[in-house]
Amino acid sequence: MLDRLSDTNRRAFLDGIRTLSPAVAATFSWGLVTGIAMAKSVLTVPQALGMSIAVYAGSSQLAVLPLFAAKLPIWTILLTAAMVNLRFVIFSAGLAPHFSYLPMWRRLVLGYFNGDIIYLMFAKRNFPTGFQPGKEAFFWGLAVTSWSSWQVSSIAGILLASLFPDDWGLELAGTLALLPLIVSAIATRSTLAAVGIASIVALLAFDLPYRIGLPIAVLAALAAGSIADAVIARVAPDRVRKPRAPAALPATREAPPGESAPTRPDTTRPDTRRSAR
């Protein structure tokens, strides 16, 4: 597959794999915990495997397992999963300006593979919006690495659940592995304010039903970050972090889907117009 990619896309794809590699341990741990939890719940092995592949969202998968055990109505289960996954609406809105030129079906596929760590790693690159050579390939490098590590660990947890004691603390290990990645993303005061407010709100709303505390914390983080940006812009406008300049395009620019590649003037041929005079 890599041989069929252009040099730009091949390098970007491998760069995406390298970028997400530090998060593989955390992803693997969370996937293993989720697989074990599904295998030890009321789900059958085929049902657990199907949920791992179709849902691909550990927080919502863990949130609905007690509801399955309690035999609650399906609308309650769907509402809980929707509340937990509401943050993906924000992630998708952040990706929309970058991939709006793609057809609908490709954007839907990108949405399925999107995730917390993937969006964090992608956003840290500060890509310019619109078409950019290698940008989609970089996203796919992140997505393939995350999805593969998650599915391998989740399926291993489902099939080998009886070999893992409940007191191993794998869920805590996954959380601890994610902390350095989260801390490394705190690069501005507004981001620090968003993380601090989200942490406080998440703790205060931890016991709310349907895991609704998670979307509340996300909305609180957005509000805190926006307010912090507005205050900093008013008090000290020179301290507002400016976005990076777009990376220089390669010499042979690739055209977005549906457009032809730009042609260059032929400088090797002599200018006959001057000699004709």
Rank of each mutant, 00 (worst) to 15 (best):
L2Y: 01
L5V: 01
S6V: 04
L14R: 14
D15S: 13
G16Q: 05
I17P: 03
L20I: 15
P22I: 00
A23I: 04
T27R: 12
S29D: 10
S29H: 11
I36S: 04
A37F: 05
M38Y: 00
K40G: 09
V42N: 14
V45T: 00
P46Y: 08
L49D: 03
G50S: 08
G50N: 01
V55C: 04
S59K: 13
S60F: 02
A63P: 02
L72N: 12
W75P: 03
L78N: 05
L79E: 04
L79M: 11
A81Y: 01
A81F: 01
V84Y: 00
R87Q: 11
I90T: 11
S92D: 01
A93R: 07
P97G: 02
S100V: 10
L102K: 06
P103D: 10
W105G: 12
R106V: 03
L108E: 11
L110F: 10
G111A: 15
Y119A: 14
L120F: 09
M121F: 15
R125A: 14
P128H: 09
P128T: 00
Q132S: 14
Q132I: 05
F138P: 02
S149F: 11
W150K: 08
Q151G: 08
S154L: 03
I155W: 10
A161L: 03
S162T: 02
L163C: 06
P165D: 06
T175D: 08
T175P: 13
L176V: 00
A177Q: 05
P180A: 14
L181M: 15
L181D: 07
A185P: 02
S190D: 11
T191P: 00
S199E: 07
I200W: 12
V201L: 05
V201H: 04
A202T: 05
L203E: 11
L204V: 06
L204G: 11
D207G: 07
L208I: 03
P209T: 05
Y210V: 02
L214R: 07
A217W: 00
V218Q: 12
A220N: 06
A228P: 00
A228F: 06
D229E: 07
D229R: 13
A230N: 08
A236E: 13
D238F: 08
V240T: 11
R244Q: 15
P246I: 01
P250C: 09
E254Q: 13
E254I: 03
G258Y: 09
S260I: 05
S260Y: 09
A261H: 12
P262Q: 14
T263K: 14
R273C: 08
R277H: 11
